[in-house]
């Protein structure tokens, strides 16, 4: 089993609902976030394109943050979810430096924090908060090894890309293009 997310950039309107829903679900302090929106504009008026991406931790199969963590606070759990045990984190920030996706931040309480794929919700059979709230239904989540999961079905027959493939991290966010 490996959890993954597909983000449909064609549908995303960049409203940032995923950001607020994550904040309220996971009690992320004001001024910080575990997910965010990137807007890329290319071309020249009037031939212009916009790509909108809802981004978060890529829960990499080959996660540099886990490898570089001196205390083992950053670790991988079932389904490939990369987690941080707050108690064991000394806030050194090595993981923040190592992440090619800028997905981690230093929580004001002294530990490093990031997206958990809402593991507490998955345990109860729920989706992540961002997936459940998205008004455009542009986020698809599930076990990528299950051919009938939402994420596998979303990837079927669509072109997609991952971010920073050259980093060799085997990221688990797939951007439908």
């Amino acid at each position: 089993m490996r959890y993954a997310m597909a983000i449909d950039t064609k549908k995303c309107v960049g409203c940032s609902d995923c950001v607020v829903a994550c904040q309220t679900e996971n009690n992320v302090p004001h001024g910080y976030c575990r997910d965010w929106i990137v807007e890329n504009v290319s071309g020249a008026y009037p031939i212009v394109e916009i790509e909108l991406r809802s981004e978060r931790c890529n829960h990499c199969e080959n996660a540099p943050c886990v490898r570089c963590c001196p205390t083992g606070a950053s670790h991988t759990v079932e389904g490939g979810i990369v987690m941080v045990t707050h108690d064991e984190c000394i806030g050194c920030g090595a993981c923040i430096q190592s992440c090619p996706y800028d997905a981690r931040y230093s929580h004001p309480d002294g530990y490093v924090d990031k997206c958990t794929f809402c593991q507490h919700r998955l345990e109860k059979g729920q989706n992540t908060a961002c997936v459940d709230v998205c008004p455009t239904k542009c986020l698809h989540f599930g076990d990528i090894e299950d051919p009938y999961s939402d994420v596998s079905l979303a990837l079927k027959n669509r072109s997609w890309k991952v971010l920073a493939p050259e980093a060799g991290t085997k990221p688990q966010l797939y951007f439908l293009t």
């Binding site: 965010w36 504009v41 430096q97």
Partner: peptide, 25 residues
């Protein structure tokens, strides 16, 4: 230390938004 993350990162194509803003912890 990053104290504040920009939620909407606007970047031109090619200028990767992800790599900027890192500093000593």
């Amino acid at each position: 230390m990053k104290t504040r993350r920009e939620f909407i990162k606007i970047s031109a194509v090619g200028a990767g938004a992800a790599a900027i803003g890192l500093s000593a912890v």
